[in-house]
Amino acid sequence: MNALTLSFTLNGNEVSIEISPNTLLVDLLRDNLRLTGTKVGCRDGECGACTVLLDGTPVNSCILPAAKVQGRSVTTIEGLAHENGQLSEIQEAFMHEGAAQCGFCTPGMIMNSTALLEKNPQPDDQEIRESLSGTLCRCTGYRKIVQAVVTAGEMKKSQG
């Protein structure tokens, strides 16, 4: 198959790279660009560990052809910290609440939570649970993850 030149914005930077047209976004990120924070748990679009933001919307990068991001903006877990290197509120909140155990679902959870908080800075318990229901965690029982999203919302609010 002919190679394809893909140009898109990745974590705020312009990227242009030659890929094979059947490359999946997750493999482009992990193998070609060595951004391994995005995880692969199932390759079925079921577990949510591979969640990244495409123009701000969470997508499962394990079932998305990389060609689909042509000209668009992709954000991964590596791109969440503020420009001065300070972690985002949801990253801080995950540590504060003890929301990560094995940590394998954490990047996907944080990406989903980031999109939710962007849309709704003060989500209630049910909204959080619905937003995160596509991201599986086998360790935590979700309570501290839900709490971390609440805490991040409060941190954002207090920082105005």
Partner: peptide, 15 residues
């Protein structure tokens, strides 16, 4: 706070 938390929340922890 868990010692591995900073690497987990930034995607830096290597599996």
């Amino acid at each position: 706070t868990r010692t591995d938390d900073p690497a987990k929340v930034t995607g830096g922890l290597m599996y």
